[in-house]
Amino acid sequence: MFVIAKREFINLFKGIKSIITVLFLLIVSYYSAKFSEVISIGIELTASEAEGIHTVGILTLILLLGYLFVASLSHNTVNREMEERTIRFLITRTSRQSIILGKFFGICLFWFVTLIISFLLISIFSQKVDLFIFLQTMSLLIYQIALIILLSVIILKPSLTMFLGIIVGLSFPAVGIWLAFTSNTWVSWIKFITPYYYLFNEDYTFVMNVILAVIMLAIANQIFKRREC
């Protein structure tokens, strides 16, 4: 599992796409933090809002485009290996579960590191790292990574997961946030499986996202176990 995780992690950092994504995130974090104080002058803020002002930039970005980022880098993490049959070198050496988990942890580590660097950059201005917001954001990413792995296992065509990644990535936040607040009982139950619903409270309900991720990984594992490669 750790070997796969390491490989996945290194792979992500080697790609040009990931470097651009990370740089973009870092630049947004840096400048939004830098200018947040300037911008917020003249706006009435509550104490907690004022406290979180520095992280607004990166939060907005990950809330709105997080799935798109994760998907663009990792949508084909499993199905590409199925298509190119490199997966055969993995499944003949280790359990299928450790392949799924290895990929999951590898991708998580990549985003964990990226997010840490972003938050450290922000702390230059805010003079502190907001651990709670960091964990909330990470829980969102963990949910999204698990979802992407699940889709990559279910859907065999990388071009399809790419397409789906863009569609879902663009609509997910809007739909998710709408679901969280809608009173339409026919659809509002769906909010319980979207990650946003668990981010609005300032408590540890965000842990639900990690639980949902575990469930998605378990499903992915069961499907992958039955797959012939």
Binding site: E84, R85, T86, R88, F89, T92, R93, T94, S95
Partner: peptide, 17 residues
Amino acid sequence: DQVKKRMGVMPDYSTLY
């Protein structure tokens, strides 16, 4: 899965990385 560790496999038509 345990046996896999003592097994070496060259499958047909598999591309490497």
